[in-house]
């Protein structure tokens, strides 16, 4: 009886002292719990700052700058509004060729990545055992942990004259557009493999079984059942491969030989003719906007 009494006393004492001992972090949590608007602000201030100031504002600056021009003598920016930069891009066959080439390279890279990623992701998701699956996911991700430049120069060693390819199989695309497509495909492959892998993971095995069961050979199953199911994932991956290829200029410098892409023009002009570089960059933004609109029309974005 006494013991019981003692216990009750100590519990009562703890209860009395409880509010005094509440740690600061607890009080902050409790305070936030009662004020949802404050909580919202605390969560969103940093990301909104990032989105509005860092991203949207700089994009707006880019768009504005493209309508200015440069004093050819001093390289100073002259803030007179005109369309000269765009007119130059439109009228010069060199720039037109570069835009078309950049588009072709971006589409080519996307195509190569798709063709390589689908069987790879299929194997990862549907064939490999759980252990092998983990190893393959890491293998697909590993290239992302290595410096871009190291990967770029590795490809330079691979495709160069007297390089690894030349010495082993006796053939190499050499420096040029083909090497750019190859290298970029290698660089952006993980961005295609991962969404496609996730797409295959979501695809129930029973759909494949059902298709075969109804008499479809594997090729028919692929075109009629698998491809429609993973198409949204391929589109998601293609947004990465396409946009990253559109803006790349370093790989082109490393393995492109004399090839130039949009990114190179932007990079080469940014010091002496920033408005023109901005106009060129706006072209890539415009192409991306068109690409995203096309993608949206396929309805694939709604299923991601």
């Amino acid at each position: 009886m006494d013991r019981d009494q003692g216990l009750t006393d100590s519990v009562a004492q703890t209860l009395r002292e409880a509010p005094v001992r509440t740690p600061f972090s607890r009080r902050v949590s409790a305070h936030l719990h009662r004020r949802p608007r404050l909580r919202l602000w605390a969560l969103l201030t940093a990301p909104m700052f990032w989105l509005v100031v860092v991203y949207l504002a700089s994009l707006a600056a880019l768009l504005v700058t493209a309508f200015w021009s440069t004093d050819s003598f001093t390289s100073e920016i002259v803030r007179d509004w005109n369309l000269d930069n765009y007119r130059l891009i439109y009228e010069s066959s060199v720039y037109r060729t570069i835009i078309v080439r950049t588009l072709a390279v971006a589409l080519g890279v996307t195509a190569v990545c798709t063709v390589v990623a689908i069987p790879f992701a299929y194997y990862m998701a549907k064939v490999a055992g759980p252990r092998e699956q983990k190893i393959l996911v890491v293998a697909a991700l590993m290239p992302l942990w290595v410096s871009y430049l190291i990967k770029g120069f590795s490809w330079r060693i691979l495709v160069g004259e007297n390089g690894v390819l030349d010495n082993t199989i006796g053939a190499t695309p050499g420096f040029g557009t083909a090497a750019v497509v190859l290298t970029l495909s290698y660089l952006w492959l993980p961005y295609m493999v991962l969404p496609v892998y996730a797409g295959f993971e979501r695809l129930p095995d029973s759909l494949l079984d059902a298709s075969g069961d109804l008499g479809a050979k594997p090729s028919r199953t692929f075109w009629s059942v698998v491809l429609p199911a993973i198409f949204p994932s391929v589109v998601a991956g293609s947004i990465f491969t396409f946009s990253l290829s559109m803006g790349d200029y370093i790989t082109v410098d490393i393995v492109g030989g004399s090839t130039q892409m949009l990114g190179n023009v932007v990079f080469d002009n940014q010091v002496y003719d920033l408005p023109f570089a901005a106009a060129m960059a706006t072209v890539t933004v415009a192409i991306m906007v068109v690409y995203l609109r096309l993608v949206r029309r396929t309805g694939a974005l709604e299923n991601i």
Binding site: S206, D209, A210, S211, D213, S224, P228
Partner: peptide, 21 residues
């Protein structure tokens, strides 16, 4: 024999209807 070579059909537990069709 592969499933597509057999004269049997299956109704699957999760129905396995093709969602895109």
């Amino acid at each position: 024999l592969a499933p597509f070579e057999r004269d049997v059909c299956t109704v699957f537990q999760d129905y396995a209807l093709f969602p895109s069709m």
